[in-house]
Design a protein around this nucleic acid. Sequence first.
DNA 1: GGCGCTATTGGACCTTGGGGGCACTCGGGC
DNA 2: GCCCGAGTGCCCCCAAGGTCCAATAGCGCC
Lengths: 208, 208
Amino acid sequence: MAVATAVVFVVDDDPSVRKSLTRVIAAAGYAVETFVSAREFQERAPVTGPCCLVLDVRMPGVTGMDLQKTLAQAVHQIPVVFITGHGDVAMSVAAMKAGAVDFLTKPFASRDLLGAIQRAVERDTRNLGTEARTEEIQARVKTLTPRERQVFTLVVAGMLNKQIAAELGVVEKTVKVHRARVMDKMRAGSVAELVRLAADVGVIVTRA
Amino acid sequence: MAVATAVVFVVDDDPSVRKSLTRVIAAAGYAVETFVSAREFQERAPVTGPCCLVLDVRMPGVTGMDLQKTLAQAVHQIPVVFITGHGDVAMSVAAMKAGAVDFLTKPFASRDLLGAIQRAVERDTRNLGTEARTEEIQARVKTLTPRERQVFTLVVAGMLNKQIAAELGVVEKTVKVHRARVMDKMRAGSVAELVRLAADVGVIVTRA
DNA sequence: GGCGCTATTGGACCTTGGGGGCACTCGGGC
DNA sequence: GCCCGAGTGCCCCCAAGGTCCAATAGCGCC
C-alpha cells in the first residue's frame, strides 16, 4: 500500500509516542523522521519527494495548529494528519477546515492512522505533480518579453492576428513574429496546447 | 451580508430548536424552510436558487450524517452546516471529511452559525454557477453527431485537419465540414474558445 | 415501396488566416 | 560599438473556412 519513497514526518514532544508511531509507520514501509517540536521541524531542510506530516495538536511552544497555519502560507502544502490525546470538537473542526487530512483521537487503531497517512501521501503526490507542471510552465512564461506576453494573452483569448495588431497598434507582421516566438518559448505545438498551458497558470481571458 | 434570495433549510426534530433557528436565520435576511426529518426534506421539490442546509446530526430515523451521504450522491451538492447537542470528535471529523462546511456544537453563538451559513451559501452560489455552465456546454456536446464528436476531440488535441483526416480515414475536406459544424454547434468563435469549452466538460486529450 | 430527413462523405474553387525566411530599422542598455 | 527587444516590408507556402454541388446510407413515415 505504501508508496516506497514517501517520507512521514512525526512531530510530537512525547518520546514514547514518537517511538511507537515510528515503529508502526516504518512497518508500513514509509521512511520516518521525528521531531520534538514544531520549531525543530521547520528548521529541517526543505522536502523534495512525496511526504506528509503527523502532528500532535498540543505541544509546548508552537502548537500543531500553529504549525498547520504556518505551513498553509508556504508554496508547497504538506498534508497534515493530526493526532491528539484530548481533542475537542471545535479544535477538530478548525483543523479540518484548515485542510487537515484527518484528526485522530488517542487511542486510535494503527489501521486508521495508516489509512490517513496513505490518503495524505496520495494527496501530496498529486499536488507535487501539478505544482511541478505549474512551475515548469511559469518558468517558460518568465522567458517571454513584455510584448510577447501581451501577444500570448491575446492569442489565448482567441483573437486573430489582425485583431491583435489593431489592439496593440502594430502591423500584422509584427504580431506574427511575436506569436511565433511565444509558440517557441512556451513549447506549444498548437494553439490548443497553448491555451491549455495558459489555463494551468491561470492566464486571465478578456472576452472569448 | 446575506444573499437576498438564498434559502436556508433547517432539518431538526426538535420544534423549539427549529423555532429559534428560524428566528435567528430569518433575522439575517435569509428565507427559511424547516423540516422535522430528513425524509420530509427529501420529499421537498428540488431546489432552484442558492441555498444551504442546517442539519441536526442526531435525529430519529435517518440521521443527519445519513442525509449528508445521500445528498453527496446527487448532482447538485447542497452545502451542509451541522449542529449537534452531543457531538464527538470522530463524528465531526467524519462530517468534515464528507464535505460539511462547518460542525457546530450547542450551545453556539448566533454569529458562528450565521458565519457558517454565509460561507455555505457562497459555496453553493459558486457551485451553481459552474454547474450551470457545465450543463450548458454538455447540452451543446449532446447535439454533436458521433463523427463530429470525434473531430471535436481531435481538434481540441491540437491536430491539423490533414492529421485528423488520416486518423479517421477520410479526406481533409470532410474534416473541414465536420469541424465547421462543431464550431457552430458548440458556439465557439475560435479554437481557443473551443479548447476552454472542452476543458470545462473534461474532454480527455490524447497527446498534445 | 417511395419520400424526406440526417449523417457522412467528397470534389472543385476561392478567400482568408497563420507561419517562416530574409533584410532592414530603431532605440536602450552595457 | 554591440546585443536585444521591437517593429516592418516582401514573398511564399500551407492551413482553415466557406460556397456550390453531389452522392450514399440509414431511418422513420405515409
